[in-house]
Amino acid sequence: MSNELEAFIEYVSVIKALSKKSVQAYSSDLSALEESLGKPLIELDSASLFSALGKYKNRRTLNRKLSSVNAFFDFCYKNRFSDEKTKLKFSKIPKLLPKFLSYKEIQNGLNLIDKSTITGLRDYALILFLYASGTRISECLALKREDIEGEWLHVRHAKGEKERMVPIAKVAIKALQSYLDEKKRDDGVVWSNYKGTRLSRISAYKITQKYLGVSPHVLRHSYATSLISGGADLRVVQELLGHASLLTTQIYTHIQKQDLKETLEVCHPMAKEIL
């Protein structure tokens, strides 16, 4: 790792105080580039960098690498390690609407679960909890019993290490309590596998895939979509989801637009006019 890159990693870690995951991502992305090209990043031109990054066919992955590179060069320019302000253009990504399930679809999946077993109670509670809280799967699996405060969830292991409080529907709290009562073992961990250890992300994925045919993250999208469809303010949804920027939450406004379009088509007299 070059001296400039070491200085940058120290900067994002100490001065900017980014999360460990963010620092690791920067370090991994940039040190891998230096290693593959055999030169310090500060000595590379745009053409060489684009050539090295060309192997990433997934545009989102490519843009993440480009973001790391741009952050590094911005740091170098501001600290006079470089005389030129290098900024690579991001790859254009078509806007994809988030996949989501309706409440009825989720209910249909829940009806398939055999709640006479501890595993069934866990699966039922997990799916309900994800849909009722809108938590990321990492946040959900890190849950401890003391994080449930009445009908509120204290999200302590949030992305970017930003804690938040989220209200939980009574039906989800009841399902969770039924599972915990049957589980009996109070080791602080909420979601456990058959061995008694913490449930893994892969296992959680298998559970939602089995009953709903989707990943756990789709339940987060479903949560947000339900709120927006019900008339929730966008900034409230932002707070509940733990989004740092309102721009991230705005992807769900397509629901409002679709509702408005359908209302116009049904109610407006000109919508049925044939030209």
Rank of each mutant, 00 (worst) to 15 (best):
T208L: 09
A169Q: 15
V189K: 13
E182V: 09
A158S: 13
P167A: 02
I173D: 03
S215D: 07
L212E: 07
E149M: 05
A169G: 06
I207G: 07
K162C: 03
L143P: 11
R164L: 12
E161N: 11
V155P: 04
E151H: 05
S192C: 14
H154T: 04
L176M: 13
K210P: 09
R201T: 14
K144D: 08
Q177S: 06
A172Y: 07
E149Y: 01
V214N: 06
E182W: 09
R201G: 12
K170N: 08
G196R: 03
E161R: 12
L212W: 06
H157L: 04
L180H: 03
D147F: 00
A169F: 14
D147V: 00
Y205P: 00
A142Q: 11
V171A: 12
I168F: 07
K183I: 05
T208Y: 07
V155L: 03
E161H: 02
P216F: 01
K184H: 05
R145A: 01
L153P: 10
G196P: 02
E149I: 11
E182N: 11
A175R: 08
G150A: 04
A175L: 09
A158I: 05
E182D: 08
H154D: 09
V214Y: 05
H154P: 04
Y194L: 08
M165V: 14
K162V: 08
V166D: 03
K162G: 08
K195C: 02
W152L: 14
G196K: 04
K144A: 01
T208R: 11
A158N: 07
